[in-house]
Design a protein around this nucleic acid. Structure first.
Length: 226
DNA sequence: GCGACAG
DNA sequence: ATCTTGTCGC
């Protein structure tokens, strides 16, 4: 816990100018090894905004029952503007606080946004994965960078996303005839791990269940805020 | 210089 | 992300 706070501070810039060098330090810490742990409780992380506040929510989903066994959230004043490729500095403070508020920690996290599919290999899922020292997978709804072709129209079809000539993720058709989602490793998982893991928590919707629940929770908190 | 650009 | 009603389609 004190380690967590320490890592959070070490990787948080004092100003926008230092954000880029911080990202490079985080990138050096990313581990892309095969995930060996249990994969039953999957956490979903998503954020919502209200005025100048960020509401981050976490829901822990049990893939064997389909239930959310625990959840938490935090409300934090925005301390960083939204700048493409620097999204994580805006949301990480609130996410860390929500994580601290979470009683039952999951086996890994699904984060709303990209992982290593990022210009410097440090999307929000990777940033959070390094700060929490946790396995994370990035699940984004739209493109940031990379080259790819569209996957087939059937559920489960996918294509590879390349960046600087290397494979960094997948475009995954999570539901028939629906716009595919962008998947990439965040931290402590390999490229080959992510589709099998994601498929265990996709039901009848485009986004995986843990993220859908987190999205809904953040939205509810936002409503009660007024 | 021009276009692209997670949430 | 957010502002927003109805509406077309499975």
């Amino acid at each position: 816990m004190t380690d967590l706070i320490e890592r959070f501070r070490r990787y948080y810039p004092e100003n926008i100018e230092k954000a880029r060098s911080i990202q490079k330090k985080i990138a050096d810490k990313i581990i892309l090894e095969t995930f060996r742990g249990r994969c039953r409780y999957i956490g979903g992380i998503d954020s919502a905004y209200s005025n100048n506040k960020i509401i981050s929510a976490i829901c822990v989903y049990d893939i064997t029952t389909g239930d959310v066994i625990n959840s938490s959230y935090s409300i934090v004043e925005c301390s960083f503007p939204y700048i493409p490729t620097y999204l994580s500095f805006r949301e990480v403070p609130a996410i860390i606080e929500a994580f601290i508020n979470l009683d039952r920690k999951p086996d890994l996290f699904l984060v709303d946004g990209h992982g290593i599919c990022h210009p410097r290999g440090v999307g929000i899922a990777s940033h959070i994965g390094v700060v929490l020292d946790y396995p994370t997978i990035g699940v984004a709804k739209s493109k940031l960078v990379g080259e790819f072709s569209m996957p087939g129209p059937k559920k489960g079809e996918f294509s590879t996303i390349k960046l600087y000539g290397e494979d960094v993720g997948f475009l995954y058709r999570s539901r028939e005839n629906v716009k595919p989602i962008f998947l990439s490793p965040g931290n402590k998982v390999s490229l080959n791990d992510i589709i099998p893991i994601i498929s265990t928590c996709i039901n009848k919707y485009r986004l995986p269940e843990p993220i859908r629940f987190a999205d809904r929770l953040a939205g509810e908190i936002k409503k009660e805020l007024v």
